[in-house]
C-alpha cells in the first residue's frame, strides 16, 4: 500500500465517521460543521484524484452552505446549543435497514464493475478543458444549470419573503374583497 492509499483511506474514514456523527451529535451547530468536515474530506479526495478545481470548489461551496445551514439549525431548533441530549428520529429501524441495504447494494455494484482502466494522464491540464467544455460544446447544459439557479433564487424569495402582495404572508395575504359588504359577511 502506497502512502497515497494510506491518505485516501484516512480521508475516507474521516468522511464516513463525520458523516455518521452528523446524526448522532446533540448540537445542531456541531452537526452542520461535522457535515462540512465530511465534505472537506471528500474535497481532498477529489484533489487526490486530480480534480484541481472541483476539489477546492467543493470545499469553498460547502463552507458557505454549511455556515448557512448552521444558522438555520439554530433558528429552528429547540435545542440549538446541544445542552440537552436528544433523539429526534422516526422509523429508526427501517431507516437503518434502508441505509445498510443501499450501502450493500451500491458496494456490490461498485465491486462488480468492470470498467476500462483509463486514468487521468499525469500532469494533464484539467481546469482549462473544463472551462472550454462549459462554454463550448456543453454550453446548453451549463446555461440550463444557470437558469435553474436563477429560477431557484426567484422561488426562494417568493416562498420565504414575509411581505405578500396583500399584506404579511403569515396573516394570510388574501386579496381584499371587491364589495366591502362581502368581507363583513361571515
Amino acid at each position: 500500500m502506497s502512502w497515497a492509499d494510506g491518505v485516501f483511506w484516512l480521508l475516507a474514514a474521516v468522511a464516513l465517521l463525520t458523516g455518521w456523527r452528523v446524526f448522532r451529535t446533540d448540537s445542531m451547530v456541531r452537526a452542520s460543521f461535522l457535515l462540512l468536515a465530511s465534505f472537506i474530506a471528500v474535497g481532498a479526495m477529489m484533489l487526490m484524484l486530480g480534480a484541481a478545481y472541483l476539489g477546492f470548489a467543493t470545499i469553498f461551496m460547502m463552507a458557505v452552505e454549511m455556515m448557512v445551514m448552521a444558522l438555520f439549525m439554530v433558528m429552528f431548533m429547540m435545542n440549538p446549543a446541544g445542552l440537552n441530549p436528544m433523539v429526534m428520529v422516526h422509523q429508526h429501524g427501517l431507516a437503518i435497514v434502508a441505509g445498510l441495504v443501499t450501502f450493500a447494494g451500491l458496494s456490490a455494484f461498485a465491486l462488480s464493475l468492470d470498467l476500462p482502466d483509463r486514468p487521468l494522464p499525469g500532469g494533464a491540464e484539467v481546469i482549462a478543458p473544463l472551462g472550454r467544455e462549459l462554454l463550448g460544446p456543453s454550453m446548453l447544459v451549463f446555461e440550463s444549470a444557470g437558469v435553474t439557479l436563477l429560477a431557484t433564487m426567484l422561488c426562494v424569495v417568493i416562498l420565504s419573503s414575509r411581505s405578500g402582495r396583500f399584506g404579511p404572508s403569515d396573516l394570510g395575504s388574501v386579496p381584499p374583497a371587491v364589495d366591502p359588504a362581502i368581507e363583513e359577511d361571515p
Binding site: 446524526f23 422516526h90 431507516a95 451500491l106
Partner: peptide
C-alpha cells in the same frame, strides 16, 4: 485508490445519507 475503493466509500456516504433522510424528524436535519 482504485475505482472499487472509491465506489465503496461513495456507497457508504450514500447509505449514511439514506439513513439520515429517512430517520430524521427535523426538516433541516
Amino acid at each position: 485508490m482504485t475505482l472499487q475503493a472509491i465506489g465503496v466509500v461513495a456507497a457508504g456516504l450514500i447509505g449514511l445519507g439514506v439513513y439520515g433522510t429517512l430517520s430524521q424528524q427535523s426538516i433541516v436535519m
